[in-house]
């Protein structure tokens, strides 16, 4: 299943400073967003996983948008990923 994963607001710093990834997920299972988080940690994350994940979700302060919609409207980690979805992670914790 093909999806795109994007990072912004400083979250990209944990992912090789790349803001855009085209991702091909293995088809043998149902993909929830929660499962994707761990897949990202194991496959794309380059450093400091504790700045990305906390207690089976993203670290508080990281916003998640699914196809440009706040994941809080889409069941957060329980959302079932569909082909061609675009998942964006924006950190609110950087800058100033």
């Amino acid at each position: 299943m093909k999806i795109t994963v994007e990072f912004g607001g400083g979250a990209e710093l944990l992912f090789d400073n790349k803001k855009h990834y085209d991702v091909e997920l293995p088809e043998n299972t149902e993909w929830t967003l929660g499962r994707l988080l761990f897949w990202l940690k194991d496959n794309l994350l380059k450093e400091r996983p504790e700045l990305f994940l906390q207690d089976n979700s993203v670290r508080p302060g990281i916003l998640v948008l699914i196809n440009d919609t706040d994941w809080e409207l889409m069941d957060t980690v329980k959302y079932e990923i569909q082909p061609n979805d675009s998942i964006l992670f924006i950190s609110t914790l950087h800058g100033g």
Binding site: G9, G10, L63, I90, S91, T92, G95
Partner: peptide, 20 residues
Amino acid sequence: FEKEIVMYAYFRKLIYFSTE
């Protein structure tokens, strides 16, 4: 709220700097 500031910047496509 910080969340709304970041969402506003995102949806308004405002360019900002976010390096630590």
